[in-house]
Write a protein that binds this DNA or RNA. Structure first.
Lengths: 89, 89
DNA sequence: TCTTATACCGGTATTTGTATCACGGTTGCT
DNA sequence: AGCAACCGTGATACAAATACCGGTATAAGA
């Protein structure tokens, strides 16, 4: 086993991440947003549904631009537990 | 052709992107930064040298955090020509 | 000189991302 | 009803990301 097969937490993170994108998409259709970002609609769907839990940086950059989102906020929203992880505290 | 085999421009973009990371790393060693970001040193090296031109979003997020970089600035620094491409103009 | 640490490079293995194809569902129009 | 158009979905195919291994080169220090 050479490549870590994505931990359950990573997959869960992918789902949360996709949910964020879907929420940001709002009323716009997948096709519309995907075209604006320059990716295929199927790719966008996989990312939104969490079936592509670790999409490429530039794909997300294009989608974030199309959806008018901040990359830093997206990353922060899916931040790893690091050490403290007080969560909602 | 099912998956676009990465255009020459995308590879070039990967090199520029890697150069940014290397510059931000400064004096710190690859191993040190890679460990801080939770990725292998080989992966960091490949990204820095442009041999991994389209890294995953969360890999870059971890590296950006370890290097204290802004994702938005990183994306902006490697922005596509879109249409206008007035650049510094 | 020998050892250590760092970085680079090639190959290999496995998993995953992305794109194309083909299907079912819904809506609107003739 | 028949048709086209759009949307979302599943299956499939290929390219690439990530990680591990060994080897090489350079520089610093004992």
């Amino acid at each position: 086993m050479v490549r870590t097969p994505l931990t359950p937490w990573e997959r869960e993170r992918g789902e949360r991440f996709g949910a964020l994108l879907r929420e940001a998409r709002g009323e716009r259709s997948m096709v519309e947003v995907a075209a604006a970002a320059g990716v295929s609609a199927e790719t966008l769907r996989k990312i939104e549904t969490g079936r592509a839990p670790t999409p490429s940086f530039f794909t997300i950059a294009a989608l974030a631009f199309a959806l008018d989102l901040s990359m830093d906020e997206l990353a922060a929203a899916c931040a790893p537990p690091e050490d403290g992880e007080a969560l909602s505290a």
